[in-house]
Design a binder for these strands. Structure first.
Lengths: 349, 349
DNA sequence: TTGAAAGCGTTACCAG
DNA sequence: CTGGTAACGCTTTCAA
């Protein structure tokens, strides 16, 4: 017999059977009361709920999912890192939305490593999640195969992709880099530098750099140096990256950074060594992070609706779980912020 | 009969029984091979693994946990918010450590609301987690009761507490605020201000303010105004909070902020309106965040080992899961960074 | 080294 | 409105 109400289980947890027995009803009746689907008298309900409270019964959702051969309420969410505040905010957007609809985030930090991601996907799928949200569009072949056959809603975020595995929300990073390159080239800068960080896999930042590089090429400018540091993209990396870059290439006229925090670091370095911004050196960031708003200079940057990305990703998963029709790929776009840390266009007399 | 190998389940997932049948062995043998616990021949192993690969079998861990009446490999982690980068980093520290030992983080953002936390605790416990890490020491009565009877390792982080529900790692926020207050009072400042954000529950920032306030009182100074904004503690909040504060209290000589980001915002505001720092106004932050390192001024602040808190919390949970003895309360302390945004002590002639 | 049967806590299904 | 029985996919236990 299963769930013998007289034999406490190994965890000393109260089971439905025990509640039912104490209330003098069957397991099924107790189950119905707890799920509140109707089909029981008020008197029965009261009896059962009284015992639930008295015994401190907590349902075992493992058993629930298992018995119903359903999905759990988990949604797996993989993010490269949280040291980068933009990803932290994407995650916050996702979890809030999921939480509001009774779902839980199972977190996976991939550290930009495709192998980590693969391993995490395998693990999280074994918990029968209701959906998956992963950052980026490059996955290992095995990961792709697992994602394909999982049969659950999947959203690839960050990097917009017109033919995603399932769904996708993000922006075209190449284009955003190209925009910035074209904008800077239009300000009559000729000698460019780039400071960012490097990872094993092709990632969104690399796409931005590629776009930037292409724009410069198209404008007959010269990308003197692209400095890729093996570090986290933050203030300090921007600061010392700029120091390194300028030490080797004093003639660089403007620098594009992987993100705003690095750009702010670069700005501080430029000021420290007495360079005037934007006269002596142009500084451009990416992301339009909060820090930009309070600087004495408005940082030239690319604004990205990152909160929206997380929110939309969660909505896509939820909609598909509920069987609603979903647009499968959403480009949230970006916006160039002219700012005041690069030169202005010449006014036409 | 259970797990009939011929009847595909509703999710179209491959079951152990199907793998076993394809390999021409029993479920038990296949199970043994997969858990690699010995008790099978090499030939059998090869047959089973071949079918696992061919069919793309992924185990259903729900069933595993359930059958063994075990705990899952989940660890529930509740964090107030991720917009505050310090919490994002604590979470990152936790998840990395847990991940390295085969555990998964189930995230809960409480938004500083005790009711959210209670609801999340109830949900996450129903998934039979192996442990729990929660931020803060104030919980609802029902939450406390659930945590007590859960019978799993529990760590309360952030706010050090010598008598935790189970385990605890953090620092004494009151003391850190007191230290800063005493330090500033020692610099001959007399009129103080505080800028922070407010939440429904008594939280760590409130404890810091209380400590700060007490130190000022003990030094016969005057806390002119404590401004608590209903917003997220960030650069912009610090900027406009300072504007508000100074508009109403022009004679304030030094301001203590809830965190460094707010302090940087305040610093920018002070510079914008032409106040000299620290001559006209002293600025002190809390947390020693990365931004502080690259400012032209070294921000006066309190350094906190936040990465360490996450890491230790995860280690405590893991140790207790493995039945190792654990120190139940760890105070990681803090360190006052004198910086250059408040006046220096008078030199003794 | 292998396998058959029982059982984990819950819900689906059917009968009363 | 209520309850008995089978089933979910796996592991434990015991026997071969």
């Amino acid at each position: 017999m299963s769930s013998d109400p007289d034999k406490p289980n190994k965890n000393n947890k109260i089971s439905l059977a025990e509640v039912a027995k104490a209330a003098g009803v069957s397991k099924m009746t107790a189950s119905r009361v707890l799920r509140d689907g109707g089909g029981f008298s008020e008197k029965t309900r009261a009896k059962v709920m009284a015992e639930v409270d008295r015994l401190g019964y907590l349902p075992n959702r493992l058993a629930t999912v298992f018995a119903g051969d359903k999905k759990s309420t988990f949604v797996g969410v993989s993010i490269p890192e949280l040291g980068n505040e933009i990803f932290a905010q994407v995650l916050e957007g996702i979890d809030r939305k999921l939480g509001a609809f009774g779902h839980q985030t199972v977190l996976g930090l991939t550290e930009h490593e495709i192998d980590h991601e693969e391993k995490w996907i395998e693990t999280v799928l074994s918990w029968q999640p209701a959906g998956l949200i992963v950052t980026g569009r490059s996955h290992s072949p095995k990961a792709i195969q697992m994602l394909r056959s999982a049969g659950i809603p999947l959203v690839e975020i960050w990097d917009f992709n017109s033919s995603p595995l399932d769904m996708c929300v993000g922006l075209n990073h190449f284009d955003s880099g190209y925009s910035m390159g074209r904008y800077l080239a239009g300000m009559e800068y000729r000698k460019f530098g780039y400071v960012g960080t490097s990872h094993d896999v092709a990632n969104a930042a690399t796409a931005r750099l590629n776009g930037f590089s292409k724009a410069i090429e198209d404008a007959n400018g010269r990308l003197e140096k692209q400095l890729l540091l093996r570090d986290t993209p933050g203030f300090y990396t921007g600061f010392y990256g700029t120091e390194q870059l300028l030490a080797a290439h004093r003639d660089i006229e403007t620098i594009f950074y992987q993100n705003d925090n690095m750009a702010i670091g670069g700005l501080q370095y430029a000021q420290k060594i007495g360079l005037r911004v934007p006269e002596d050196i142009g500084i451009a960031g990416w992301g339009d992070l909060p820090i930009s708003a309070i600087q004495p200079y408005r940082l030239t940057s690319i604004a990205v609706p990152h909160l929206k990305i997380g929110q939309i990703a969660a909505e896509m998963v939820l909609a598909q779980i509920n069987g609603e029709p979903v647009k499968s790929a959403k480009d949230v776009g970006f916006r160039l912020i002219p700012g005041s840390t690069v030169k202005k266009p010449r006014t036409n007399a």
